[in-house]
């Protein structure tokens, strides 16, 4: 249970900025005449944005926060793995929907 809550806390920080930017990318599809909002674009850009925001938030802006997760039994590689896995699943949902 502890691991699940820690994972949620870790990922919560990434999901909102990554989603906002990805939805903005989705709306870019409406710019050309006859264009539509594209969930596929949201999905693809969400995966890339989650990596970008992980780097910006945890590696650049708040590197000390890693110690919170280290003390809870995670290492950096696992945190990157968690991000990639959850983001891949969410991206897939957007792309398939």
């Amino acid at each position: 249970m502890r691991q699940i809550i820690s994972t949620i806390i870790f990922y919560k920080r990434l999901v909102i900025p990554a989603l906002i930017v990805s939805i903005a990318f989705g709306f870019l599809g409406m710019i050309p005449p006859g264009g539509n909002f594209s969930l596929k674009t949201v999905g693809f850009s969400y995966f890339l944005n989650s990596i970008l925001f992980h780097y910006l938030i945890y590696e650049i802006r708040h590197p000390e926060e890693y110690y919170f997760y280290y003390n809870l039994g995670f290492n950096k590689l696992e945190l990157w793995g968690i991000n990639l896995f959850i983001s891949f699943v969410l991206s897939l949902i957007f792309i398939i929907a």
Binding site: R13, E64, E65, Y70, N71
Partner: peptide, 10 residues
């Protein structure tokens, strides 16, 4: 467990 020098809580 380790307390670093700087604030580490999210």
């Amino acid at each position: 467990s380790y307390l670093p020098q700087n604030h580490f809580l999210p």
